[in-house]
Amino acid sequence: MLESRELTKKYGSKTAVSGISLKLEAGHICAMLGPNGSGKTTWMKMAAGLVKPTSGEILFEGAPVSIESRRHIAYMSTEPYFYTWMSAKDVGKYYEDFFEDFSVERYRNLLARMELTEDLKVKALSSGMAAKLKIAATLARDAKVWMLDEPFNGIDLLARDQIRECIVERAGEDRLLLLSSHLVEEMETLVDRAVYIREGVLIESVDLEQLRTERGLSMADLYRQIYTGKEVIA
């Protein structure tokens, strides 16, 4: 559903993403893993059309990412991005205005589950509440691809469980969910594929159940192995 071919992004002399060729099929929840600055966000932003590649291609359903693909791809960036003059209600209105797949009802439902109210001002939100609002707005869409960049950042344990539940609810055979997070161990049961990136390069792409069956490793074990170079004893 989402495919990149030799995708590269350079900022001057710095290379953020280097020739990543990756194919992500529908029906999966996929984790994008790697340390800060490894290129995960840049890859996602290129898929969302926010960043233009230096070379290579990024395709959605076989066609290059375009205005049309933005209708079906929901990207949630790490940082807060709502206009500061907005209230939670305004955010809902904005999404409703621009995205056909957005459901105000689902949004309100998600807000309630995250213990947020519509009259809250974006300006007045704590970082945890701002993070929850982003998720509520993004998951209230009925996209074909959701890319959540660090959805668990700054969120307390109970809300994280709630968010995991919401993510599972949105998953489906015809959808793709891509999550990038540092909380590798918390995602173990949630995701079924993992993509490991380091310094802009794709290191490995695995099916997690296969990883467990064939190599006896967990997603976190493989992460440690890849990024420290040390063999993990299974």
Partner: peptide, 17 residues
């Protein structure tokens, strides 16, 4: 399947399996 997925906090794919 979906209920099971939500209940255990797992992927719907896994639940289907």
């Amino acid at each position: 399947g979906r209920e099971t997925a939500v209940q255990y906090g797992i992927n719907p794919n896994t639940a289907a399996r």
